[in-house]
Design a protein around this nucleic acid. Structure first.
Lengths: 237, 237
DNA sequence: ACGCAGTATATCGTATACAATTTGATCGCC
DNA sequence: GGCGATCAAATTGTATACGATATACTGCGT
């Protein structure tokens, strides 16, 4: 038999037993912005927090570094990633590049029940926007990304789906760093417009809306080169 | 100062000191098809081979599993990935989805010297095709992928570049498994056509050629569902 | 001879231990 | 008082050790 024949079926076996949940927990914390960019994540601390040894903590941090959410610096440790403005631009450029294609794929195979599901997500998202409080804010962040991830999931391509998960997560980091208007809700109505266009079968319009939607998110950032002030000018000015 | 300010500049610090070269060595071996799909990669063997402990061997294998080149099965070990036909289709679908966009980006910023470099790659590729022997074959495989990777590099988007590296590497695995015509050279002239189209400024044509090129590679595969023969029928037939 | 049970071995999962490097502090000196 | 060197603490890099799990073998019974 092929050695990894069944491995592809069970989706949750890809990593060590205990590492996965640590990785997920930290990722959630980063994406929901409970962990600020630049925060140090020492192996010992992470291990103690989850009651595991440094071995597993380290593995989780390494895994997150492959996703671009954590940056590990040799002999210095791991930190919540601090994407540069240039990196931020690349993330959104990547999204503009792939999301229209994903959208087309998704639209081609979408079922009525999946459209229903999307509308449901949108409604939930709208509800969260009207609510107040930190937890609602966090849930809103996640819901906003879930719209894009659901489309990727509908597209049926697991590889693109994983890639989108990475891009959405990293987008959250970028918004946390460079976002201006605390109101991230501006994109909500655009989500609805996209679904409407899909339903109407107007794919070109849907893609067009998607690209603009992504650009709108990016436009709401302040990506001017804060040249980290050579530290000399930081006080000379 | 931002904690990871300089980390983004030095490109080679992303992982542990010793893990990186092991990872690269194994990846090269897989991509060049010296390691067949399904081959077991025990942690102890890998460690001994590179004179490091299981700790580093394991880290390298984990890293490769994130790239999709190695599949680790819990309590069973790591194997060179054995992509299913469905997975293979997704890989090529992903390439059709992203490569036209990358091509457009690349064409927009390409310089004459970079075109020169591409032509040089093509020439080298052609030379390898005419040569005989295993080493030439391996070099040809790498050269064929390098064309696509160089384009990604020219596009200037590091994220898409990394994604393409993953896709090209996995493509090599798929071709090793399902390729029919030993002659992978069929795609060579298409590379040249694409460069010509770029030079002529005909982006639409270049993208069109790229999509067809990818489809041609895929068409040369035999992706029929070999249902891994339950082992009963394997001999009853 | 075939199948099954139990054991034996090999390999992985995780924790701990030790070496190397960095960071921050203390002390002396200018 | 400010500046530099040396040393101590903390943290990471790597190796080893031990427990758990799966696979292979052996011997028994039918």
């Amino acid at each position: 038999m092929t050695p990894s024949a069944n491995a592809l079926l069970q989706a949750d076996d890809s990593a060590d037993t205990g590492t996965q949940q640590i990785r997920d927990a930290i990722r959630d914390a980063i994406v929901e912005r409970r962990l600020a960019p630049g925060t140090k994540l020492s192996e010992a601390d992470v291990g103690n927090l989850f009651n595991v040894s440094r071995t597993l903590a380290r593995a989780a941090l390494q895994a997150l570094s492959y996703e671009g959410l954590v940056s590990v610096e040799k002999n210095r440790g791991a930190f919540v990633a601090y994407p540069s403005p240039d990196e931020a631009k690349q993330i959104f450029a990547a999204r503009r590049l792939v999301e229209p294609g994903i959208l087309r794929e998704a639209a081609a195979r979408i079922t009525p029940s999946q459209i229903q599901h999307l509308r449901q997500l949108l409604q939930e998202e709208g509800r969260l926007i009207s609510e107040r409080g930190q937890t609602a804010r966090r849930a809103e962040i996640k819901a906003s990304g879930d719209f894009h991830l659901t489309l990727a999931s509908i597209s049926g391509n697991a590889i693109m789906q994983r890639f989108m998960e990475e891009l959405v997560a990293r987008s959250s980091l970028v918004i946390a760093l460079y976002g201006q208007s605390a109101v991230s809700s501006c994109g909500h109505s655009e989500h609805g417009d996209i679904v409407t266009a899909i339903e109407a079968g107007d794919l070109d319009r849907a893609c067009h809306l998607m690209v603009h939607h992504i650009s709108h998110i990016e436009a709401d950032l302040d990506l001017r080169e804060r040249k980290s002030f050579g530290l000399k000018e930081a006080f000379s000015i």
